[in-house]
Write a protein that binds this DNA or RNA. Structure first.
Lengths: 322, 322
DNA sequence: ATAAAAAGTGGAAACGATTCAAACTAAGTA
DNA sequence: TACTTAGTTTGAATCGTTTCCACTTTTTAT
């Protein structure tokens, strides 16, 4: 592989000049520029990015730290994040934490060692202190502090819409279902919005927010089914939770949407084998992804952002469950 | 950030010695080692990976180049690839090509510039000449040449199993559905296996392999439905194709599995909102992913592999469509 | 006790780029 | 002509490691 020195030799100029040509920085006589370009061409020279990163003390690499790329919501998010990064000449490093705090911390160390330019994080840790000011960071759906800007959908408004749509679909007594065992999460605002709107409209409602729905799902849902037998609407905190509820409800002989209307949150169903098609509050995943990237890149350039939390509007998408 | 020089100063030794301590290479007196370790501790020193990559002329970064991480098969694959890489101390760079040949080439250039240690590629290009010997590479499902080792599921056997299972489920005249407009793909062996087994068993069959199912899907499937009205079984080349067929068939008043049994290929349905649950030939995604990584890392260490194509056995998973 | 071998350590060179002060050139001005 | 100014170019220093050769110290063998 030819280096900048080889180019300089062949063109009969100094390495500094070649550098200026490559980066379009500083003044270079047209004649010199042509000579250099010819040499570059002839040697098939491309700058060594690693050397550049080293000298510059930073790389054009952004890390995406999330629980699991396998989850459809995250994989869609990752798709758009990569796309936006690529447009800006950045690369994406993918880190699955499995939602394990210790692995998140391990990744943060690694990322620091590798001098990544920034991190988009979907984390379960109280990372407030772990990361702090070292690396520019954007968080999706988690609001830690002013250093870590948060991009999220308008969860509160989403909750309000969900309640209204359940009522519109005929539900007399809807329930909220779901929990995030995590203080910093913005997603519990979905519940707040739901409750807020129910109070405004004077609609009776229930809220089921047992902790830790991840282990012993069977019990989790059967408890819910037993406790609130008179409900006729469910707003689940995620599509995944909605789908699980529907499955368990079906087993218990409850028909959706005849007996119970169901609305989820996310809108991840873009494949032909998703059935039933959920009624859901659709997160603008693409816009969230691109916003997160753009904000992050601003941060890496030293700009300070004007807000701590950026909320992207959501829309309701009617499916087969209301 | 403290550098190796700071450590050397504090410990009262030379940088070379510190380097030897860090890398456990060469001989160092226990006493010296302790001094150095204490200094490292005190300064909170961590080696700069970028500088190391630069000096070593290679990084511990593997690129995953695929059409779209959004696709559930790829996102599952990516999950396991990342996991296996992490175990080995490597990082994953994610590149979505959108299946566009020019973008694939663009990424190859970029990867070369960034001196990645290797590439796992799922490409649509005739990359045989573009990459060649520069970067160690493993391909999933595509068999180009000896330089690019291929990891794939046992497509031929999968096709045979699919036919047998369709027959077992009662199909008298099954059809193969699907096409990959790409010469190097191993996936068309699914058809070969299907046909092979039909001939052995003396079962009448049909094969529908129109090119380019990506544009104008409606026409693609309606043509299929019209042309082969007497078939009562479908083996689709992917789960995605199977799901689309089922959707179109339903619209045409065909009941699955009553009128037509359907078997797909992939086994990507691990979420509660996938319905109907497809009968399918399950690819061992995890094993494929880990195998690909292990083979690739062997390559990066200069080993030559004993085979050009590694086929991982598949299994049949009964669902609701047979 | 001495020589030879082995173990341990120091420090400079190298990797490939960017940057910056200094030097040089060309053009304009008095 | 001499001086100023702006435009170009040079080349050494630098980033943080690893590596290798030379040198010193310790161990082993005779």
């Amino acid at each position: 592989m030819a280096s900048i020195k080889d180019v300089a030799n062949l063109a009969g100029v100094a390495v500094g000049t070649v550098s200026r040509v490559i980066n379009n920085a500083g003044a270079v006589k047209p004649a010199t520029r042509d000579k250099v370009k010819a040499a570059i061409e002839q040697l098939n020279y491309v700058p060594d990015e690693v050397a550049r990163n080293f000298k510059m003390q930073k790389s054009k690499m952004i890390a995406l730290l999330l629980p699991s790329i396998w989850h459809p919501f995250f994989s869609e998010l990752a798709y758009y994040i990569e796309d936006e990064l690529d447009r800006e000449g950045y690369k994406l490093m993918l880190c699955n934490s499995g939602g394990k705090p210790e692995k998140e911390l391990y990744y943060f160390d690694m990322l620091k060692q590798n001098k990544v330019a920034g991190v988009v994080g979907i984390t379960y840790n109280d990372i407030e202190n772990s990361v702090s000011t070292d690396i520019p960071m954007i968080s999706i759906d988690r609001h830690f502090n002013k250093k870590i800007t948060c991009v999220t959908s308008d969860n509160f408004e989403g909750g309000r819409i969900a309640l209204r749509e359940l009522v519109k679909a005929g539900a007399k007594k809807p329930a909220f279902l779901g929990n995030v065992p995590f203080v910093y999460s913005e997603t519990m605002l979905r519940k707040e919005g739901f409750v807020h709107e129910a109070k405004i409209l004077g609609v009776p409602y229930e809220v089921y927010e047992e902790p830790d729905p991840l282990r012993d799902e069977d019990k989790y849902y059967s408890t819910f089914l037993n406790r609130y037998q008179d409900i006729d609407g469910v707003f689940a905190i995620t599509d995944m939770a909605a789908a699980k509820y529907i499955e368990k409800a079906k087993e218990a002989g409850i028909r959706v949407p005849d007996d119970v209307k169901v609305i989820g949150y996310d809108g991840i169903q873009d494949h032909p084998f998703f059935h039933p098609l959920l009624s859901t509050i659709r997160q603008p995943v693409e816009e969230m992804a691109r916003t997160a990237v753009r904000l992050l890149l601003k941060k890496t350039e030293g700009e300070t952002l004007d807000r701590e939390v950026y909320q992207i509007p959501v829309t309701y998408r009617a499916g087969e469950t209301t």
